[in-house]
């Protein structure tokens, strides 16, 4: 058994633990692999040394309450997404994972009704599909209503902060040079001009800092939009 097999068996067996706990447990084993592999052992040797991943995972679950043993972990503290109505919220909270235990998700219609009942969904046997459509529509509405005007505002802020910053810095240089020329005839006016220049320059610096921050935001925003679009299309739990 190689490292990936070992880790993924444990991961799928530990699916009903909170993700943070699961990651914490798995990190111990990943660290163990890292050290042993560096020592020159093969992944297969390390797996054998660690023991059977199924049994190991089972020992981590020993103290869990019986009723939690079949189902994946339902995170109580996860905030409910704004676009889901309260009575549909519970199925969304089930953590997504391809490696769910085969008995976790009821497939046929009667089981699904039972599942909905447990989850608190009333009179809506087709809730998952419906929610999927709703979230896709919602996604596009937000895209058109908020993202496009948002894009113009964002571009405006980007250009404004950039050119504003450059302009103010040029103004600073101008004021300082001007001040230097004025000093021989009027010291007070010259120094005043130079101070004004420095103040303008500082303002320009702030503009450029804002510009820099805005630029750095771009990849984050794009990533978040893509992730959200993805979850809207897949319904979040497939």
């Amino acid at each position: 058994m190689n490292k990936n097999e070992f880790i993924s068996i444990m991961e799928s067996k530990l699916i009903r633990l909170p993700k943070s706990d699961r990651d914490d447990i798995l990190s111990d084993y990943e660290a163990h692999f890292a050290v042993e592999l560096e020592k020159g052992l093969s992944e297969e040797e390390v797996s054998a040394q660690l023991g059977d991943p199924q049994e190991l995972a089972a020992t981590y679950l020993e103290n869990l309450p019986e009723n939690a043993k079949g189902a994946p972990y339902i995170a109580p503290e996860e905030p409910v997404d704004e676009q889901t109505q309260p009575e549909q919220a519970v199925p969304e909270q089930i953590e997504s994972d391809q490696a769910q235990p085969d008995h976790a998700q009821p497939a046929d219609a009667s089981d699904e009704a039972q599942y909905d009942k447990i989850a608190g969904v009333n009179d809506e046997p087709a809730a998952p599909a419906k929610r999927n459509v709703t979230s896709i529509v919602f996604f596009f509405i937000v895209c058109t209503l908020i993202t496009y005007p948002g894009l113009y505002i964002y571009t405006g802020a980007l250009c404004g902060s950039c050119f504003g910053g450059i302009g103010l810095i040029i103004a600073m240089v101008g004021c300082c040079i001007g001040g230097a020329f004025v000093i021989p005839s009027s010291v007070a006016a010259g120094i005043g001009l130079i101070f004004l220049g420095i103040a303008l320059g500082a303002l320009g610096g702030l503009f450029l800092i804002a510009f820099n921050a805005l630029i750095r935001l771009i990849p984050k925003i794009v990533k978040a939009m893509i992730a959200w679009g993805k979850s809207a299309f897949t319904g979040g739990n497939q």
């Binding site: 914490d24 111990d28 163990h32 040394q49 981590y60």
Partner: peptide, 20 residues
């Protein structure tokens, strides 16, 4: 994990559970 597994017959993996 590795020291204990050397002296006691136990799978290395189970020590992490004990620590946890």
């Amino acid at each position: 994990a590795s020291k204990l597994a050397q002296s006691i017959e136990v799978a290395d993996g189970s020590i992490y559970l004990v620590l946890r």
